[in-house]
Nucleic acid binder design. Structure first.
Lengths: 348, 348
DNA sequence: GTCGAAACTGTAAGCGCTTCCACTTTCGCC
DNA sequence: GGCGAAAGTGGAAGCGCTTACAGTTTCGAC
């Protein structure tokens, strides 16, 4: 008779009793370890099914000293990037029998506490650079928690995975300069994340390589609102003061600018060229199409999971810093005609 | 002296020894339960910090018979919806001290196994309708696992949360009919999810209410590719055969159609009106703007988390079926002028 | 049949934490 | 100063599982 709704859930003892075997044998059957007779196997399976037995993972974790779970700390889940990252991560984890426990820091009332709790539940943690400060990361390292950093500046002795930013930004900027743009501006606050600072670095490098002076970045948040606000400012300026090209830190910013400028009577790409970053879906539906840079987010997640697992199992002890190639997606908003180009992956 | 890199992580015994107190007192300090002297508290805090002590969650879970974790089963993470849902969920969970363990079924090599493993790690599970078949859900219920269904047809005795679909679809369709459209078509396979079937039901209801016959839905997947393919088919047909309005099951489909039709020389909304569902970012950047229906995804996640928690704690035993209101977002693609309207929330 | 090895099964000792209970100390008040 | 209550502390059991070890069968070969 199946356990009624009020009875406590079945334990391995209940299964053993019903199968008239010891809990040791039940465990061996369920885990597929050790030698078991076919008869015993059948009886256990039958009993387990009959009792709707669900092994309590905490007990196993305690006994085997392993959680078989990864922690993933993200700043946010807005936009498609983190979703894709998570997707790639979860996929890898699922294929390798690891659970994924997610923690989002943005808006979290007590990230410290959440993090410690997380650390006690998993075998290792992947941290996105925008999610946690360095102190929190060092704290974890001190507690000997295996860690992999994503989109985070390199930390000595710590694994990291990120996508290439500076070279792509430089290539993109050079292209604009080569096509006659004279007065470029970087839109987005480099302080908002490591990736953005790298993009600004690439932007700067291109300008310097062309013998230009490097303007200060327009330090605004990476949001549509900020883009619209900044567009107003541009529209209020005279044509002479206005830049003739905007390299934006992400697509939200670029899309909002694109639209607001057009609404204000400024032609894109004729008067001003605009580029973004991330290649969100809207980038290919807006017109003119938004030139942007695509990051392999799912692959980033996948790789992070793999690196963490290597670290947890101890099959690798030397730290690795992987850098994945991005892809420049040329569309009409940059005025240099459509086409595509791959950036060379730096030697990791 | 802090534990070296090779030593096993500190346990509560190590902390107790260092603080010269019993593990009972250490536990009380750490959990903030029971009376403890200020002196003891200080010594424990000091020792814990010195040893970088991270409590092993599995041991606590075993002792208190609670995981303080929720399982979340999603079909996928593509598109912004699931990300938003997850966001809302995680937020609520974080605020209430619950961890979130994520499982994605699409592409999972062994969903059954993943699900059972998940069930052993959490206090309850939220399942998205597209993620799991009814048998799997019933399996969990039999094992007495608290469950909340999201975007799933009602199951007796089971909590559920979804957003309203039929009424919005009916309202949207009526509007098109009222503005003179004669030959509407529903694009997207109702079998692909409960929500889509509800949208088709609303579409059908509107047609019947206007005394029209209800055409079979165009049973295609809810993807951009499918939209583009179907557009080709429409372009190949004569103007007479062609519908003059397309109610699409989601925005991807609608956007791809919008663009492909325009490229093929068919004017939207003049020749054909097009509507989507979800209000993705691209819907407001494409031109003409895409008329669509917005679902409160974050709120859906939040509410699901809350309902599950109520179930877990036992503060509610009667099943609830919540239905959240959606919002019709009128843009130019439907040819009836911009504006907005809220659908009335059905009585839950 | 007998014997040794191999196959199978059971006993029991933990894993690290919480918490009941009993015990000691402190304290307010008569 | 003595007394009862309250505050603080520690001992030890137990949460449900894995697994080392020992014990029991089974079985093939002599």
């Amino acid at each position: 008779m199946p356990s009624g709704p009020t009875s406590r859930p079945a334990t391995i003892y209940d299964v053993a009793a019903l199968a008239k075997l010891s809990i040791a044998t039940v465990s061996r059957v369920l885990q597929g370890t050790g030698p078991v007779s076919a008869k015993a196997r059948a009886r256990v399976d039958q009993a387990a099914h009959e009792l709707n037995y669900v092994p309590l993972r905490a007990a196993r974790s305690l006994a085997v000293q392993r959680h078989e779970a990864h922690g993933l700390v993200l700043p946010d889940l807005a936009g498609p990037f983190y979703g894709d990252l998570l997707m790639g991560y979860e996929r890898w984890a699922g294929e390798h029998g690891q659970s994924v426990i997610l923690t989002v820091t943005h808006g979290n009332p007590d990230p410290q506490r959440s993090l410690r709790d997380l650390a006690g539940r998993v075998d290792g943690i992947v941290v996105h650079g925008n999610a946690l400060g360095l102190p929190a990361v060092q704290d974890l390292r001190r507690a000997n928690v295996p860690i992999v950093l994503v989109a985070h500046p390199p930390v000595t002795g710590c694994d990291s995975v990120r996508s290439e930013s500076a070279a792509s930004a430089e290539q993109l900027t050079s292209r604009l300069l080569d096509h006659g743009r004279e007065n470029l501006l970087f839109v987005g606050d480099p302080a908002s994340s490591y990736d953005v600072s790298e993009r600004y670095a690439g932007f700067s490098a291109a300008l310097r390589a062309h013998g230009r002076s490097v303007p200060e970045p327009e330090r605004v948040p990476l949001t549509e609102d900020a883009g619209a606000t900044f567009a107003k400012k541009l529209l209020a300026a005279t044509a002479v003061e206005r830049p003739d090209g905007l390299v934006c830190a992400n697509d939200e910013l670029a899309l909002a600018l694109l639209r607001s400028l057009a609404a204000g009577g400024i032609a894109v790409p004729e008067d001003i060229v605009v580029t973004g970053w991330d290649d969100v879906m809207a980038a290919r539906y807006v017109s003119p199409g938004l030139t942007t840079v695509r990051q392999p987010m799912a692959e980033l997640g996948r790789l992070a999971a793999q690196r963490l697992h290597e670290r947890i199992t101890g099959e690798r002890t030397r730290a690795r810093n992987d850098v994945l190639a991005t892809q420049l997606v040329l569309r009409d908003s940059c005025g240099t005609g459509p086409g595509e180009a791959r950036t060379a992956p730096p030697t990791g």
